[in-house]
Design a protein around this nucleic acid. Structure first.
Lengths: 335, 335
DNA sequence: TTGAAAGCGCTAACAT
DNA sequence: ATGTTAGCGCTTTCAA
């Protein structure tokens, strides 16, 4: 293995000079820098991550906690994870993957063993059990999601309440009076995952404000679950003319089942989804949707932790404003 | 920060004793062990990962290289990644997430800086450019996938050739004579991703052996792409009575589009998929399928690298035998 | 069964 | 602008 000492010898300088060439933390004459860099190149030197971590108490690693569950938002999760990883790399950090399964223990582990300099936590519940630990942690943490109490932590998330409201306003503007909300799987609400409840809250408030009726039905995964949910909705509220869907696994089945029931989209019923643009574009009827900006969320989360690690100010909580894109699935309410 | 020295002092033993209690590498009297463990507990001691890595030249981290692309098998990727992470944790390893984007550079980085003890590489191309580096690497590597030349590397994968053959045999047994293969996105073939080509090879060989006709059409992502592909197939080969699908994003649209064209599944046409069981079960018509054992693949990959890291023998290449489950989407060929 | 002590490869004062 | 040197916290020989 090639060490920094090897490089120093080869370049005829001291170890610290090599170190400083690498870190840029003090000025080095052009000639020395060049010589050192050539030696590094020639010897194929790479700093030893562990040694560096020990000496500098910086691991250049960001831990990312991803939910293990599969009842939820798979592509969104992957998109976020990927955005986190690429953004982190761009800032010189690697990403350590932790599963939500480990829960608070993972936080302790990361904190105690100094494997990572910071944490990004996904799939946040309103009253998340990892929260107290993160608050008193020495290292910066950013949640992707929004707990009920955000004191002492930074969060990045879509403003799901505003997203819900936006859906209602769009539909109200088109003359719809009865809306059904096809939500996430029941488990997601039972766990009190923030985004699901917040969308619902936004929908409710806006429906009240506009005098619309709202029916909320969680919806499990799989064709038959969607079919059952749709059946119940149409039976309970035959006057429903619009659906808001926040459930990645349900959008396509829903469109197909509506077609099967001879309900044309958007002529008979309108559908508005809360999902990534990619999903909306690829649906059988391109969906009018409020985008879940997964990439943006991942990117912002990394930029926040990096800012703190670089000694700049933490941005606190950032709620991204929702954007609704009109596509083919929404139209005037039938009369 | 609590260090090993703190623990030693607190327990009234030497540093090495604490270290040995932790590693179990030499026998310790029950009483000392107990005392040390109590001190560890009381002080809330966690070994510093960097220090440990430096002293032992073991980071207890496994690097996992995941493709960044989204034109491919998203749930499968996530399932594998999760299985890798949980299995790794069970063996005391953490997982470092690398994106395929970095390509060979990532291999060099991991290798040179000793961030990870081993690598698991996904989305392997037949003639992968990371392969030469992996072969001469000091650290064990396992590919999830199968390149054309497997010398000097370990691989774990489903036997996709056998999977293709299995599909054909099932359909041939049901009396089908003309099969269409709805494959992955064109890009997947252009990159020469092994599994896609191998399934095709298996299908071809088996069709030849059984005297069936096969039509292969790659299929892009999105409803319209599937529609176009289906249109072309039915036009070119109106006698098609069975579809084999290996494209996660295309299965559900395909079923819906067949329905739309008044082709009943399985009465008019049969559909056999190559996908995770979860996907097959949840489709609008539960799909007869050859399972892609994502979890199993992730698990096996980790177990292989861990075996090598523990000084046991490497298992070389493991091709998992395919299993076909008959569900509702396949039936006798119409006459 | 336990301790002492020499590093592991790097960073960052402290010198010059 | 560069060199010297004392650790960072742990593992592991070597001794007892």
């Amino acid at each position: 293995m090639v060490t920094l000492a090897d490089v120093a010898r080869h370049a005829g300088v001291s170890a610290s000079t090599v170190s400083y060439v690498l870190s840029g933390k003090r000025s080095i004459s052009a000639s020395t820098r060049e010589r050192v860099n050539r030696s590094i190149e020639e010897l194929g030197y790479r700093p030893h991550a562990g040694a560096r971590a020990l000496a500098s108490s910086r691991s250049d690693i960001i831990a990312l906690m991803v939910p293990l569950r599969t009842d939820i938002y798979v592509p969104v999760m992957l998109q976020i994870a990927m955005a986190v990883t690429t953004t982190a790399r761009a800032h010189g950090y690697d990403v350590l993957l932790l599963t939500g399964e480990e829960g608070p223990d993972a936080v302790r582990r990361v904190e105690g063993s100094a494997v990572a300099d910071a944490m990004i936590v996904m799939d946040v519940e309103l009253d998340d059990e990892r929260l107290p630990l993160l608050r008193e942690a020495q290292r910066p943490a950013v949640l992707i999601g929004l707990p009920s109490d955000t004191t002492g932590v930074s969060c990045v998330d879509l403003d799901f309440e505003a997203a819900g409201a936006l859906c209602v306003e769009h539909l109200a503007g088109l003359g719809h009076r009865q809306i059904a909300f096809v939500g996430e799987a029941p488990g997601v609400y039972e766990r009190r995952t923030g985004f699901a409840e917040r969308t619902l809250a936004g929908l409710r408030a806006a429906c009240d404000a506009h005098g619309l009726r709202l029916l909320h039905r969680p919806c499990g995964i799989g064709w038959s679950a969607v079919d059952a949910t749709l059946g119940r909705i149409l039976e309970e509220r035959p006057g429903t003319t619009a659906f808001v869907v926040q459930n990645e696994a349900a959008t396509d089945p829903l469109l197909a089942l509506l077609r099967q029931r001879r309900l044309a989209v958007p002529e008979d019923v309108s559908v508005v989804a809360v999902c990534p643009d990619q999903v909306a574009e690829r649906a059988s009827v391109p969906l009018t949707s409020v985008a879940v900006p997964a990439q943006e969320m991942g990117r912002r989360a990394v930029e926040q932790v990096v800012a703190v690690l670089d000694g700049r100010e933490a941005a606190g909580t950032v709620l991204l404003p929702p954007e609704l894109t009109v596509r083919a699935s929404s139209g005037p309410a039938p009369r």
